[in-house]
Design a protein around this nucleic acid. Sequence first.
DNA 1: TTGACTAAACTAATGACATTAGTTATATTA
DNA 2: TAATATAACTAATGTCATTAGTTTAGTCAA
Lengths: 188, 188
Amino acid sequence: MAVRQGLDTETVLQAAIEIADVQGIEQVTLAALAAKLNVKTPSLYNHIKGLPDLRRLMSQRSLQDIKAAMVDAVIGKSGDEALLAAGFAYVNFARNQPGLYDAMAALPDLEDPQVKEASTQVVMFILRLLASYSLSEEDALHVVRGFRSIVHGFSSLEMKNGFRMGLERNESLRRLLTTYLRGLSVTS
Amino acid sequence: MAVRQGLDTETVLQAAIEIADVQGIEQVTLAALAAKLNVKTPSLYNHIKGLPDLRRLMSQRSLQDIKAAMVDAVIGKSGDEALLAAGFAYVNFARNQPGLYDAMAALPDLEDPQVKEASTQVVMFILRLLASYSLSEEDALHVVRGFRSIVHGFSSLEMKNGFRMGLERNESLRRLLTTYLRGLSVTS
DNA sequence: TTGACTAAACTAATGACATTAGTTATATTA
DNA sequence: TAATATAACTAATGTCATTAGTTTAGTCAA
């Protein structure tokens, strides 16, 4: 025993994400994580500072991956088409990695500098999608808040079984996003 | 010692809500709750089945209170004005009772019949607000999903310090809701 | 090759917490 | 006033996170 498992922070993080996605975020305990990695719980402290630190790492990774998914989705697209694609990419990320997404959403506060930075990256990405709309800086920031509220709210409700009617979910999302975009295009 | 405290389920629930709103949902432990009520932890089991049961009760109450707040907000209003008022009432509820709101949002699943019923009440309320729009049943259900996504997403992000730019938040919400409603009103 | 060092694993211990079983004591009510 | 129901209790167990201190496996320089 006491065989070196060759762990590092990234491996621990990956295992935590896997537990979160398969069993749910509340099952991400150091005990479960250690068992999965064939190690005793205290050994994890060589790679992470503790459970709060692990959750912080998960939040940060979640934001980075969501941004990457959106960046990929908008390749070759612009305007409404790009925003629609980004919105779907966001929601599909939450669908594919519910535990990791939850880790981001469940973070009590976004005080940590690195998490804050990852969050800022998401905001700046959306701002760039809005560049072609010729909005004032203030207007654009309100729209970013709107867009994020929409995709996060939809993801969150869908994930928690909040949509119980037998209604096509992608159609709901498509309508939500296009309705909002249509509202933006009308010079009230 | 062993003085009767006159506890009942409602009193326990109220105390839990108070802890949640003041200290955060993660501080709602049976230990903290018992201390607040001048009782030992096991005594709580005379009134609630356990921690999961308490959380279920909190979710249910949260949904009921949100609906009540929206019902109150739309008195004497109809159409867009009513939806806007209901949206603000929803978000203001989350602002005033962040812990209770979190209890609802943090519930892993909405399987419980009573929670489900409370959730259905919210959906049916919004459907009634949409009655004057002459939408098909299917269209109306998509709009309900949209509306809920918007207000929940906004509440959730705001609560988690997700909006960090120095931008008026009520203005963001007002624009989000009115933009969506404007999009609805345009016969694409 | 060996010796020293670094770091990754370990054991042991503590403290917070939820939960259950079984007991005591206080109201209520017949 | 006696009997019953029940709200509180104590005691015990098990899970978990965390810290301190120890052992041991790789690494690297002499």
